[in-house]
Design a protein around this nucleic acid. Structure first.
Lengths: 341, 341
DNA sequence: GTGAAAGCGCTAACAT
DNA sequence: ATGTTAGCGCTTTCAC
């Protein structure tokens, strides 16, 4: 019944003007007599009145809304990042509107529009394939945004990632150190993070004079099943002994495939490295050796940086944060022979 | 620059009134001459004009906003449910505002307020501990809501869950069939789903004249580490051979603990059953026998039901949807001896 | 088929 | 310390 109670009604009950009530609402209490303040506060509480954020937003142009586009909320990497974002948003009294793009660029474009129309104050993009025209649209709309786990060549675009090139390098070096020579990897050009990982990986193979063409190519990151037959071929024909899966989520699916379908053993028949260190990789059939990146922190810091961009809007700043990933040694890589020591 | 373009500006450029532009915007094209329509559409496109959803919401009282409160987005069960919700919302052109409550009842209360203030049209509550006064607040505000994976005794509250009592029963029966006699389980009273699972489980033990007091109690679902020492005691002193972990997320952490800390083997030293069938339970160290519930569908259907409640608001309907869970046999339960056949 | 005018609930000058 | 007024950008009578 009190769902339609407005500031005017409170003002009437308190015998003051809407302005005064508004001042109480926005904490400008120094402009209100103590007595009046108390009275108004009492009535607000009694009536359980809550100001309309919509009306306020329309007036102030501040929505306290941040848009979040996530490629795949089901991938534990992203859901951990999301948690970092959500926790931080809660602290700062911002509300998050979220969408799952399923890695679809066209959907991401549409979502961008929706979020702009909703007048979000900023945008967090967790793996969008950012095209130039999207950047233009965002900049034209004056909406600051930060990419997470993605990079772009476009100057003046902010991002929070780990050093994926370096991460790829770490993986390759580890395989090599452990005596692997025929090493395969998954390639997916759709994600910039994957591209960088593979670049660092491939380059390192090359520098060690190893064949760097044992690649399995993935068009659509959503259809991981499609790589399996190519992977099988690489194992059979090229005798690869190691495979860099690009991320843990995929690595675990590969692990399942190898074990259940091909009846192969990891790491005896094939060694595997993932990326991300998602929470279950330590409890996988074979505990997964992986490249770790600080997911929660990445979400948290992305949010903090976005706040800065929003608040310092006079200086059109750019945030470029890159974490150093680390290799986490577990049990999915076979030590064929040790070059070290 | 065109960030401030409004309907008035479009009207001016087209040489018509705001009303006419508004009619084009809302698809009331039968009220507009073809010629005018085309002209206006052209200008809208040229100017890349997007109507302010805020202003529209203020006027129409429709926000196209649904609030989603999730207990722990990082738990793959919830993130899968969330995906079902998000995909469906996208289809129906609704926007989701999301928060992670970390299982905190006080935070959930606060979030409820925030979401009401934002004038969400409906609310999806994935495991909130719903107190009576919350229900009153919601009903007073006239906001329909649906609980996911939770139930309540309060009449007229809608929910989408699986039959947790039956799920618990399935788990107990399976242990018993496989020859287990000393069977432990995790108890957590905070979540209604857990309570029901444990009730069904315990009752079944009882009906089979087995000890049903081998319980490990968990106060805060966020601190799973705390159950370990109790679990250890149960294994040592009571010689339990099987343990029902309440959900897969916890089961996997128990699995890690047993393997890494206690150097025990599953299922040789302890058999384990989880719940939910999260995507990685099939790839766990020991593929997890679990009770499956249709997570994605639950999210999807919860959203659909909420739409119904929103649209049929004259009839104050209630949706009570209960899925039948199924036991998924994998490798985490030892067959001590077979009673069957 | 089109437009003028009012108003959604709030805040922000600008008075007083 | 408080009130008056105007207006955010849209939709919706009601009139023409």
């Amino acid at each position: 019944m009190n769902k339609n109670i407005t500031i005017g009604e409170i003002a009437r009950l308190a015998g003051v003007s809407k302005t005064t009530v508004s001042r109480v609402l926005s904490g400008k209490t120094n402009l209100v007599k103590d007595e009046t303040l108390e009275n108004i506060s009492k009535i607000i509480k009694e009536q359980n009145y809550k100001p309309s954020i919509i009306a306020r937003s329309l007036r102030t142009k501040k929505t306290k809304l941040i848009g979040l586009i996530i490629a795949d909320i089901e991938n534990p990497f992203y859901s951990r990042v999301a948690k970092g974002i959500l926790d931080e948003a809660e602290k700062l009294n911002y509300t998050i509107i979220i969408s799952n793009s399923n890695h679809s660029t066209s959907l991401e474009k549409k979502l961008l529009d929706t979020f702009i129309n909703r007048q979000v104050e900023g945008l967090l993009l967790a793996t969008i394939k950012l095209e130039e025209n999207m950047v233009r649209i965002l900049q034209k709309a004056g909406i600051p945004f930060i990419l997470i786990d993605t990079k772009t060549d476009i100057e003046s675009v902010s991002y929070v990632t780990s050093d994926n090139y370096y991460g790829g390098k770490l993986a390759a070096e580890y395989f090599i150190q452990n005596g692997h020579r025929n090493i395969g990897y998954l390639r997916c050009d759709k994600l910039s993070s994957f591209r960088e990982r593979m670049l660092g990986f491939k380059k390192t193979l090359q520098q060690n004079s190893l064949n760097h063409d044992y690649e399995v190519s993935l068009e659509e990151i959503t259809c991981i099943g499609k790589i399996f037959s190519d992977l099988k071929t690489l194992i059979r024909d090229e005798k690869i002994t190691a495979f860099f899966a690009g991320n843990d989520y995929i690595a675990i699916q590969v692990l399942k495939y190898l074990t259940n379908e091909l009846k192969l053993t990891v790491p005896e028949d094939l060694s595997l490295i993932g990326y991300d260190n998602i929470s279950i990789s330590s409890a996988a059939m074979v505990p997964l050796t992986t490249i770790m990146q600080p997911k929660y922190s990445m979400g948290k810091i992305a949010f903090e940086q976005l706040m800065q961009l929003i608040n310092d809007n006079q200086i059109k700043g750019t945030a470029k944060i890159v974490f150093k990933p680390e290799l986490l040694e577990r049990k999915s890589v076979k030590k064929i022979n040790c070059n070290k020591g």
